[in-house]
Amino acid sequence: MAETKPIITDEYAESITRAEELAYELRIREVMTKDVYCINPDTEMETALDTFQKRRFSGAPVTCDGELIGIISIEDLIRALRKNNLNAKVREYMTTSPTTVNEYDPVVEALKTFSRTHFGRLPVLNEDQQLVGILTKGDISNGLLNALQRDYHKEELIRYRASHLFEDIVSGRTSLILRYEIRKGDFIHGGNASSKIKRALLRLGATPQLARRCGIAVYEAEMNLIIHTNHGGTLRIEIEPHRITMEAYDDGPGIEDIDMAMQTGYSTATHEIREMGFGAGMGLVNIKRCVDEMRLISSKERGTNLFMIMYLNNTT
């Protein structure tokens, strides 16, 4: 990033909630200025003025044998100038026992201190109360913008990976197939495959909304395989550039009355399954609500095939 110090106004900050979040996530040590120029309390004000001019400072911590004893700012220099007293020592004009912040505190703590005190800078101390840095509002703006930039790059990278997975491979019809065997009655692992599928979709660059909808549909389908089949079944997810096809199939016993099964509240589940938080006759209804297209084929001879399709033209 360039060396300029952009300022985040309060109005602007309000509109970006991610920046607010970052104020909680970022630690002060990540945004503070580390190489602090310290001034000796016995320095003359005139020398301090020269230093401030040369280095373009507006304030600096005052230390004695490495210990923070005060802070001197341009305001103090102006006071000395007014009294024509530039020969005085820094010790006489500095602010003693300045307000400090801890290096491991979240940035938001420093923001609160700034708005409470109207100080221009805050010395940063470590756990042993030693001075390790100095923090201005400019440091915070810079730190937040850098963090936002990093976020943005991460997101870009994910999008790049996803879009290029299919672009880089040239074929007549490219698709990625994920398969999961689901065992009958395996409640302990119920939802495990769906979690993995959701994560895979996010990895591939799906939006959180799309991944969530697919996740919910495939979770209900997974629980159906665990609850209602003779021997469990298979989840097969095919991801193509233009659509995601999720299929759940088993070898029986088949659904006797599909129209009935599609009604909210109709269920053949046992009490034990209801205790797991499922089996309330909502699974298929939930699935239908989540996906763009749903097809259910079932017979006593061949078992059940459930197709759930999401089209990607508009949703990603």
Binding site: G191, N192, S194, R212, I216
Partner: peptide, 11 residues
Amino acid sequence: NPQVIRTAIIA
């Protein structure tokens, strides 16, 4: 039970 956590992941 674990289903609650899985539900949390999915939703």
